[in-house]
Amino acid sequence: MTNFVLVAGAWLGAWAWDEVAAELRTGGHDVHPLTLTGLAERQGEPAPGQQTHVEDIVAEVARLDLRDVVLVGHSYSGVPVGQAAVRIGDRLSRVVLVDANVPVDGESFLSGWPSDEVRAAISKNDGFWPPLTADEFAGQGLTDEQTARLVAGATPHPGATLTGPAVMPRPLSEVPGTYVKCLLDGDEPWGAAVDLFKSGHWNLVSMDTGHWPMFSQPHDLARILHRSVTAP
């Protein structure tokens, strides 16, 4: 039995996976959406750093004694998910990164792309990155209803998790994985994601939608996750 552990990106919690999780369960999988410390229903907990979010994932796998684990990370959460993947050993079956950042040892989520505006926003908002407005989700393949749901559920993201360095004892390219590229957010994977495919352990899947496919195309995303279980 495959165990999917689903971790959404910045501002989001386990709730973001509701439609995807329901379809995966219908397909016979066990599914464990996870809210990271400081987000959604976990707002108000002690302010986390990058390694807090890594430990959230590792601890959940251990707490539930999961085996044959597919770790799924979207956007920001690719950074803690990737670190957790190399820590959980033979419990891991595969990593799936959904339009996600890839962890690099010693670098943060904000490394490698123009992030001055994000850093300034964190500084102005008491150490939190404020969620996007409805207008900022334009062009991402979302209906008005989907955008409204995203905006209503989003919560400020703890800034220290974005600026703390990743700890990678070995590259993520050494574990089997699938990278899902959302084409409305750019045609090709960028940054450290490019290096994943050089090892032969990763494959690339594209979706004709924007950066939040769990909202814009949840059924298609669920099918991709289901197929990842049998990927070479």
Results as ranks from 00 to 15, higher is better:
231 A>L: 00
150 L>F: 09
19 E>V: 10
165 P>Q: 14
149 R>Y: 01
90 D>P: 09
40 A>D: 14
12 L>Y: 04
165 P>V: 13
216 S>M: 12
107 E>Q: 15
139 G>R: 11
56 D>T: 06
186 G>W: 02
129 W>Y: 14
137 F>G: 04
145 E>K: 12
1 M>I: 01
229 V>C: 01
84 A>C: 02
177 G>R: 01
108 S>V: 07
168 M>T: 10
208 D>T: 04
194 V>Q: 14
109 F>I: 06
95 V>K: 01
24 L>A: 10
133 T>E: 14
79 V>A: 05
98 V>E: 08
211 H>M: 11
82 G>R: 06
44 G>Y: 06
182 C>P: 05
143 T>L: 07
140 Q>K: 06
89 G>S: 10
92 L>K: 03
232 P>M: 10
38 G>D: 07
174 E>S: 14
17 W>G: 10
90 D>C: 09
175 V>M: 02
127 G>P: 04
196 L>T: 07
20 V>Y: 10
187 D>L: 13
181 K>V: 13
15 W>S: 08
4 F>G: 03
87 R>G: 04
29 H>E: 02
176 P>G: 04
193 A>K: 04
160 A>S: 13
163 T>Y: 11
213 P>N: 07
82 G>A: 10
200 G>A: 12
26 T>A: 13
217 Q>E: 15
113 W>P: 03
135 D>S: 14
20 V>H: 07
86 V>N: 05
80 P>F: 01
179 Y>G: 02
167 V>R: 10
143 T>K: 11
62 A>P: 03
164 G>Q: 08
148 A>P: 08
221 L>W: 09
121 A>Y: 03
157 H>M: 10
40 A>W: 04
13 G>W: 03
83 Q>M: 13
213 P>F: 06
112 G>H: 06
44 G>P: 06
168 M>F: 06
205 V>T: 13
85 A>G: 06
213 P>Y: 05
86 V>H: 01
180 V>Y: 02
181 K>F: 10
131 P>T: 11
29 H>R: 02
112 G>Q: 08
27 G>V: 00
7 V>E: 04
114 P>F: 00
215 F>Y: 15
49 G>D: 15
148 A>E: 14
232 P>E: 13
187 D>I: 05
188 E>W: 11
138 A>W: 10
142 L>I: 07
202 W>Y: 11
59 A>R: 07
170 R>W: 00
75 S>G: 14
31 V>L: 05
124 K>R: 13
91 R>M: 03
160 A>H: 08
125 N>R: 00
120 A>P: 00
79 V>Y: 01
139 G>S: 10
202 W>E: 08
51 Q>M: 10
77 S>A: 15
61 V>S: 00
137 F>L: 15
168 M>A: 11
194 V>K: 15
